[in-house]
Amino acid sequence: MRYIIVGTGAVGGAIGGRLAEAGQEVVLVARGAQYAALRDDGLRLTTPEGTRTHRLPVADGPGAVDLGPDDVLVLAVKTQDAIAALDAWSARPVRGGGTAGERLPLICAQNGVESERTALRRFRHVYGCCVYLPATFVEPGRVSAPCAPLTGILHLGRYPSGTDDTVRAVAADWEKANLAAPVVPDVMRWKYAKLLSNLANAIEATTGVLDSPGAFALFDRAREEGNAVLTAAGIEATGREEQEAVRGDRIRFDPFDGSERGGGSSWQSLSRGTGTIEADHLNGEIVLLGRLHGIATPVNDVLRRTANLFARERRAAGSMTVAELTALVDAEA
């Protein structure tokens, strides 16, 4: 199989680089400065083992890729960018007839729970991927993945449920690439659990803090709303004990240069000044479910709106204090 990484940022770059190191055929897809850096200088992936430069085929969109019947599309763009990517790639013809949407498997390696449902409108064969892969991309062409001994743990399964030979073959390839890839019949249980943990992203992005008592308290309030709306909606998420049993000592933060762990995906979006952020599909998912089921979600609504304001106005990541953010939440509540 050949892996087409649609969105070579932190997660896409780490997956693509690790697959290339394991001997898999990989095509990297990116835009703008990232595309130019990958094309001209290659993907520089730094892990605890050191920095390697991978000079791989690079494309700036589906028109530059000749798709074959054995290709696998890995969607690793931010969820707010998914519709445009799905529309473009689903219509792309595949050698031998048909389109990518009709013939090729698509793996949604993203935060949130919206992309799989969106993808299923356009792709016949959709797979969920619960991404636990701490990585950083703040400079074009460079991706840092500091965890060891595994780079990441990526639960895989068919959407909406089930498993098949395709996902088992993908998992086998990924397991050879320093990536744990458990195949599960209920991948969305894992993704909803990850959604709850990602409710902290907006706090970290706007305040730059996650490990203070005030930040913990705010996150607890956001997560309480999340648990309440999932219960009201009849949605099950994996529990912390089940998650820890899988992770065990197989993945830990292992800084290779003495540095502290970098910010998460939302913090990175603000740091790069992209103008967008994924809050509508993280905290906003809780707000949506709350409105559908009559549950008040003022904490997540404030976090969503504040993160969007930061992105829209290109405010600096971490330029608000936890106390200021908490005051906004308290006023709303």
Rank of each mutant, 00 (worst) to 15 (best):
196 L>Q: 07
161 S>A: 15
190 W>F: 10
110 Q>I: 12
149 P>F: 00
260 E>M: 12
277 I>T: 09
98 G>A: 03
293 H>D: 13
276 T>I: 15
58 V>S: 01
221 R>M: 04
130 C>E: 06
75 L>E: 11
54 H>Q: 06
208 G>I: 02
264 G>I: 13
309 L>V: 09
40 D>H: 07
279 A>M: 02
7 G>M: 02
99 T>A: 14
70 D>P: 02
180 A>I: 05
111 N>V: 04
332 E>M: 04
302 V>W: 01
13 G>R: 09
297 T>D: 00
122 R>G: 05
32 G>M: 08
53 T>R: 11
230 L>C: 05
206 T>V: 11
193 A>K: 02
296 A>Q: 11
216 F>T: 13
90 S>D: 10
195 L>V: 04
154 L>E: 13
39 R>N: 09
261 R>W: 08
20 A>W: 06
58 V>C: 07
333 A>W: 00
81 D>T: 03
223 R>P: 01
141 G>K: 03
102 E>L: 05
31 R>Q: 15
3 Y>V: 04
68 G>L: 07
134 P>F: 09
250 R>L: 10
200 A>V: 14
49 E>D: 15
284 G>I: 07
34 Q>I: 09
7 G>Y: 02
151 T>F: 10
281 H>P: 00
240 R>G: 07
87 D>L: 05
141 G>E: 03
248 G>K: 06
125 H>V: 03
75 L>W: 09
281 H>T: 14
37 A>L: 10
314 R>H: 13
246 V>R: 07
252 R>A: 14
11 V>D: 05
72 V>S: 09
192 Y>H: 15
58 V>K: 06
317 A>C: 02
95 R>S: 14
140 P>C: 07
86 L>G: 05
176 K>F: 00
235 I>R: 10
69 P>K: 06
211 D>A: 13
119 A>L: 08
308 N>R: 15
4 I>W: 03
323 A>N: 03
333 A>H: 00
